[in-house]
């Protein structure tokens, strides 16, 4: 793209990132954006500004919202539109020969039924919230346990250059580990780091994939170790995004678990 064409487009970048352009301007800008890495970078920078501006304000949504989110994405998600809670249609079963007393009883019954339903919905919402909180607490407890329990062993994976360091806190009893990386440069887009569990016999066992922050820090919690395998060490490779079943690159970090204490 020539500069003559690109400069007016560049002027539109802040407005595009803000969503302030007209539909026509948006279409023209997006056409240019698709082929211009410079414009893509520019828009991405303005989106970072948007994110910084967003942090200027915070306001807590309703506590139930999180439970609704977990319900929506989980297996318990109700079918149909989110938030819709269709009440079953009550059909009249014997309209004939009903007197006033029966009508009153029906009304009372329907009224009570609706009230019970509303209360049931409220209880269900509260249960979902409590479940989400319990899950969060359990997760935090598991993290603490994973590094603080007496049986936890620390294995440090180091490279020959001693630059990146990865620590593995492995709980043999619960067969769970926590990975803490530092000075580990983030891998490029489309690639991930992958942890490998080294059994006493056989091939490496594929484990968690992750990437690190720009400052080289990374933390992966609650990684399960398959039952029935005696793990003697850990290794790290760089793999395509999504991970691999077997290492496709040479491990650049390796650490053996110290003999049992």
């Amino acid at each position: 793209m020539s500069d003559a064409v690109q400069d007016p487009m560049r002027d539109l970048a802040p407005g595009y990132a803000l969503g302030a352009l007209t539909p026509e301007e948006t279409r023209a800008f997006e056409a240019a954006l698709a082929t211009s890495p410079d414009l893509q970078r520019e828009v991405a920078e303005y989106r970072e500004i948007n994110a910084l501006l967003a942090e200027q304000e915070s306001r807590l949504p309703a506590a139930e919202l999180k439970a609704r989110l977990m319900e929506r994405i989980g297996s318990r998600a109700p079918a149909g539109s989110p938030g819709a809670r269709p009440l079953p249609v009550r059909r009249s079963f014997a309209p004939v020969a009903t007197g006033m007393a029966l009508a009153a009883m029906l009304l009372l019954s329907v009224g009570l039924s609706l009230k019970v339903r509303v209360l049931s919905d409220a209880v269900r919402a509260r249960d979902s919230l409590l479940t989400a909180r319990d899950r969060r607490l359990a997760e935090r407890e598991a993290t603490l346990n994973s590094i603080l329990e007496p049986g936890v062993q620390l294995t440090t994976l180091t490279a020959t250059g001693a630059q990146p360091v990865v620590q593995i806190f492995y709980d043999r009893v619960k067969r769970r580990l926590l990975l803490h990386a530092f000075r580990l440069t983030p891998v490029a887009a489309g690639r991930v780091y992958q942890l490998w569990l080294m059994p006493r016999k056989g091939d490496p066992i594929a484990s968690q994939t992750f990437n690190t922050e720009a400052d080289g820090h990374g933390l992966v919690e609650s990684v399960n170790v398959p039952a029935g395998e005696e793990i003697t060490g850990f290794a790290l490779t760089v793999e395509p995004a999504g991970g691999s079943r077997q290492p496709t690159t040479t491990p650049f970090l390796f650490g053996a678990i110290a003999a049992s204490q």
Partner: peptide, 21 residues
């Protein structure tokens, strides 16, 4: 799911404020 819950805890308040405005 716990990872999503954690991301929600981290950013729901700022996103809710932005959406509310």
């Amino acid at each position: 799911e716990p990872a999503l819950a954690r991301l929600y805890d981290r950013y729901s308040a700022v996103l809710f404020a932005a959406a509310s405005r």
